[in-house]
Design a protein around this nucleic acid. Structure first.
Lengths: 172, 172
DNA sequence: TTTTTTAATCAGGTCCCCCTGACTAAAATT
DNA sequence: AATTTTAGTCAGGGGGACCTGATTAAAAAA
């Protein structure tokens, strides 16, 4: 078994990263006169955006199912995104009960912009360090997937698929 | 300059970590019948708790100043924490305008419990990997501090001090 | 065709983070 | 003693993540 101290050190750094990262883009958004407010994480409106950037043109129901949200919540988030011009709604022609949600250009940009600016804080790391980090995070993430799976088996597949597929699009 | 691909890989993993981590404890809280709800991050009530665990017995005004919050928001969070028995309020005897906020035992436990369970997902990492991770995250965090500083010079000192001191208490 | 299922919507709610404005009580100044 | 500054409180508001219940319109099944 590994050295407890080393584990704690790493854990501390990870927590610190969490907090500092959060604050960093909070501050960035506040000062930068960026009219757009929030980080758009994997929650609420951000969730929708992420799912759509992986598979565009889903119906609201589809979105709700994939994201484990009630259809009402989904509708709420979608409507908010429509107001911000990030997605569009249109009635399906084949089944007129359905509403198809699509990313607008702005929506696509927004989704990618999120990741485009990430590597900034990775500057200063050597190739070796980047490789190490990637390898380590892969393990950590797998541990987390396992944790999610243990707690909620049904949810994993969908979630993991959405996240991984999306990240693949972005980074590979 | 570093390999762009390596940087992207690492960035992808980091984003993935963010999302998966978030979802992991969301799910954990949902299923585990843990009566306590939220992760208590560096926001709102969590912010207060963190600050207090670094320097207990501050006045509300002090808290507000350190955390860059309005006094009203601070009061709101403090009151919520009081209801949860995590902090206590008492009038200062030397200056009867002031209200001194202190962590209760439960509050202290809660603050530390947060970190106690973190190393879980670090299991499976070797000592070497843990060292590497720590070193790398240190660099990343410093980059982020620099970013915060650039965007909001006034805020940095307070923030960095609170975070680092608190983490030191927890992990060293 | 009538009934049932399905995709959405509206209404209303809970709780969280955070802010401004108005007002009180207690110190510090003048 | 009268005034001003300071620490808090109350009231009210804006936005966000979510949910349940009730209702409508359209498609699928009986």
């Amino acid at each position: 078994m590994p050295d407890l101290t080393k584990q704690k050190n790493a854990a501390g750094k990870l927590i610190e990263f969490d907090m500092v990262h959060h604050t960093a883009d909070e501050v960035a958004h506040r000062n930068h006169a960026d009219k757009d407010k929030h980080p758009l994480r994997f929650q609420g409106q951000g969730k929708i955006l992420l799912a759509l950037s992986q598979a565009d043109g889903l119906s609201q129901k589809e979105l709700a199912t994939r994201l484990n949200l009630s259809v009402q919540s989904t509708a709420e988030f979608v409507n908010k995104l429509v107001k911000k011009d990030l997605v569009s709604k249109e009635k399906s022609t084949t089944d007129r009960r359905k509403t198809i949600i699509r990313l607008t250009n702005l929506g696509q940009q927004t989704a990618s912009a999120e990741t485009a600016k990430v590597p900034e804080f990775l500057s200063g790391l050597s190739d070796t360090e980047l490789d190490q980090l990637t390898a380590i995070l892969t393990k950590i993430n797998n541990n987390l997937y396992a944790e999610i799976d243990a707690a909620s088996p049904t949810e994993t597949n969908k979630f993991e698929a959405v996240v991984k597929d999306r990240l693949r699009d972005w980074f590979l």
